[in-house]
């Protein structure tokens, strides 16, 4: 079998192989031992083992044919709560056959992206099928999950991985793939991924595709320059220089050609602005402007217009910085 993407190749297959999150893992293991589990709610930042944790639990619980007993849905990809309900219904109405575990597991990723009305509908569905199906909801923020769902689930909070663990993970893959990664390279990957192991792994693999012998910080930055954040930096710099037309073309490229969502773009703009080498007080001012536009994105209907205002305002700040 070809190895494909390392993030999948090295994704821990069993709970025993999980990296860090020891507290959570030991509780998940006790569910496997009892062959029973409550509805679960996993919250925490990206790349901290939420999906990995539940997939590993399923494999430990059901054995190699675990995929027959789980259904993975991603709330942000499904066409409305009715479609979700239909899929859940079809999956959950039959009991798990040929298994000593009497229930199946439904994994709902990005559950926090569901509207509160949709969550209420989901809660009713959870109740109807509790006998034959356990729901595992995954999200970034528990604040976005309605209280009635939270109270029906055991909540597990996944924290971002610490520096030592994150670096250890990257080294572990680098060794297996026979890469020579220098400490500066390791540092740069950690810096850019801040405890998100999927991102760190993808970044390492992208770097390895361009340079195998000595991966240092330059390798990593050159990779970062070629992905979306690089285009976003270009957008910001053009904006600061007052080259609005060119900036707008870059923005349209991001929105239309690359298909990034407006909230992803503004998130990238925010983190890039914090990294700019401009006087600190301008960062505060830009942060305020970004905050205002971030809010307007939720209030208006035209994402490109709102992001363009931000670009136009960058020029004013750019003028002031250059005196």
């Amino acid at each position: 079998m070809s190895s494909g993407m390392w993030a999948e190749k090295y994704r821990p297959k069993r709970l025993d192989e999980m990296w860090n999150q020891t507290e959570i893992i030991s509780r998940l293991k006790s569910f496997v031992k009892d062959k029973n589990l409550p509805h679960l709610l996993f919250v925490g930042p990206a790349g901290t083992g939420k999906t990995t944790g539940i997939l590993a639990l399923a494999r430990d619980l059901y054995g190699p044919a675990y995929q027959n007993y789980i259904l993975e849905l991603n709330a942000s990809d499904e066409r409305g709560i009715n479609v979700i309900r239909e899929k859940v219904k079809n999956f959950a109405r039959t009991a798990a056959i040929a298994s000593e575990v009497p229930f199946k597991i439904l994994i709902m990723d990005e559950a926090d992206s569901l509207t509160s009305a949709a969550q209420h509908a989901l809660r009713r569905t959870m109740e109807i099928y509790t006998r034959t199906c356990r729901f595992v909801l995954i999200g970034n923020y528990s604040e976005n999950i309605i209280e009635p769902i939270q109270s029906r689930c055991s909540v597990f909070r996944f924290g971002p991985l610490g520096e030592e663990d994150a670096k250890g993970w990257i080294k572990h893959i680098a060794e297996n793939e026979k890469l020579n990664i220098l400490p500066e390279g390791l540092e740069a990957i950690y810096e850019a991924s801040t405890g998100d192991l999927r991102k760190a792994t993808n970044l390492l693999q992208a770097a390895a595709a361009t340079q195998r012998d000595e991966i240092d910080d330059v390798t990593i930055y050159s990779v970062l320059g070629r992905v979306s954040p690089g285009r976003v930096r270009e957008l910001i710099n053009l904006g600061l220089k007052g080259q609005f037309m060119e900036a707008r073309e870059v923005l349209r490229g991001l929105l239309i050609d690359e298909g990034l969502a407006a909230d992803d773009i503004i998130r990238l703009i925010y983190s890039e602005v914090l990294r700019l080498s401009i006087p600190e007080r301008y960062k505060v001012r830009l942060s305020d402007t970004i905050g205002e536009i971030d809010y307007r994105l939720t209030q208006g209907a035209r994402a490109e217009i709102q992001l363009s205002v931000l670009v136009a305002k960058l020029a004013i700040v750019g003028e002031e910085i250059n005196g």
């Binding site: 991603n74 990809d77 991102k199 693999q205 990779v223 298909g259």
Partner: peptide, 17 residues
């Protein structure tokens, strides 16, 4: 991951790979 995340986070790096 979701398609949205694939587009925003994963594919740009896969393109480099």
């Amino acid at each position: 991951v979701s398609s949205k995340e694939a587009v925003a986070e994963v594919i740009p790096l896969v393109k480099v790979m």
